[in-house]
Every structure is written in C-alpha cells, then in structure tokens.
Design a protein around this nucleic acid. Structure first.
Lengths: 114, 114
DNA sequence: TTGACATATCGACGTCTGTCGATATATTTA
DNA sequence: TAAATATATCGACAGACGTCGATATGTCAA
C-alpha cells in the first residue's frame, strides 16, 4: 500500500488568512466579552426579557457584589454589546442593535467550512 | 410631562433566566476558547482552507513558538471546535462538524431580541 | 441643602492564562 | 537499531482578569 495515498507533504501553502492581526484582535475582543458565565447570564437575561433590564436586577440573580456587576455591565457596554440608559436613578441595559448581528456574523464566518 | 411616562419602578421581576449556572459556564467556556487572537486566526485559517490544516502551518503564520501553537490547538480541540488527525508524523486539524453549528446557535440565542 | 439610594470607580488580592525554553514522546527514515 | 523531525508536555514567569470592600459620583425626594 504505497501508491494508494499521495506522498505526505507538509506545510503546503494555503490561501492567506483573511483575518489580519488587527481583525483577529477585534474578534477575540468580542468573544472575550462573553467568556465569563456572569456576562453570559446577563446577556441571556436581557435577551429573554425582550427589553431593557435594570442593573439592580443582576446583583441578586447572579449572587455577585454590586461593584462586580457594574464591572461586567461596563465590559459588555464597552465592547458594544449592551446599551446603557439612565432612568431616574436606575441604569437600564438593553442589547445594542447590530452588535448581536455582528456576533452572529462572526460566529457564522467560521461556518464557511462544512 | 408627567403622565407621558409610567412611574419609574425598579427591579420588576423578569422571567427566570433560561440559563442556569451550569449552562452559562459551558457557554462561557466555548467563548473563552475563541477569546484569543491566535486561536481566532487558527480557526479562521482552517475555515478558509476548507479542509484539514497541518499544525506546522501555524508556527510561522502566527509568529509564535511551537509549544504555544500546540497549546492553542489543544485548547481548541478540548472544547470540541477542532478535530485532530494524525498523518504520518504530522498532525492535521479540521473544524469539527456540529461544533461550528453549536457556536452559531449559541451566538444566535442572543439574537432573540431585535 | 440635606439625606437616601443606585451606580461607578478605586485599590488590592488571588487566580487564571499566554508565553517561552527545555524536555519527552511519537513517527518516519537511514 | 539509531538519527531526524514533528508534536506534546513540563516548569516557570509576567500580565490579565474576576472579585471584593471602601469610597466617589450621580439622582431623586424631603
């Protein structure tokens, strides 16, 4: 069984990666924002709520301190996934239009395969 | 302008989060695997290649040492995104069927909103 | 203005993670 | 068998990150 398979050759040049260093960094930044269970639950809660959610909602639901919750909300907002809205003395957060579509698009970009 | 908006009330009970702690942890684990530029480029390279890619391909492309590349490939494989295949003395990696669909589904779960 | 409450920021701490050099393992070739 | 090459593992290090208590900022009500 020698002619059945082509000679094993390594490191055949592939098409240049479509993502350069900068784009990869940006994509990783987006995933990094969701690389924490607390932030996943925050996004999930807002998504299932179908609208803006008060920040005070998360402290008891997640069992985390107020500064920690604020930290996570800021991280999600900074990356553009959430939108902050002041209502009286409360802060409400909702999913930002386009950000979710961006996320889905990035995830689907990896679906080019099979 | 007082009757135009409903009285500001905080902490209205929302539907219970559909994701429990365990599910959130698992989801975060998946995102964590892609929360690094090097791993994003690895997945992107394999996706655009349309097939298995030799491990030796990444060391020069990413500008990282061989142990570091191996570490990233292991991380992506452990989370189930990549599949390892031995060809002679080389290791080839391809996107695992279903994993990409899982990723897209998780990302779309957050698209329930708008 | 003062007090009460919601949220943000700060500083610190322990843990996790990416990175590397050195080394071990595995596979092919001589 | 031994040598060569590809990959994985190990140990160590620096930097990033999640977490909290203390405190500052902002907003409303009295």
């Amino acid at each position: 069984m020698s002619a059945l398979v082509a000679p094993i050759v390594c490191c055949a040049p592939l098409a240049e990666p479509t993502l350069d260093e900068e784009q990869a960094e940006a994509t990783a930044e987006l995933f990094k924002a969701l690389a924490d269970p607390a932030r996943v639950r925050i996004v999930n809660t807002i998504a299932t709520a179908g609208g803006a959610v008060c920040a005070c909602e998360f402290e008891p639901a997640l069992g985390l301190s107020q500064p920690t919750v604020s930290h996570h909300l800021k991280k999600l907002t900074d990356v553009g996934l959430l939108e902050r809205e002041q209502r009286g003395k409360w802060a409400y957060f909702s999913l930002k239009r386009g950000a979710v579509e961006t996320l889905a698009a990035v995830a689907d970009l990896k679906g080019v395969c099979c």
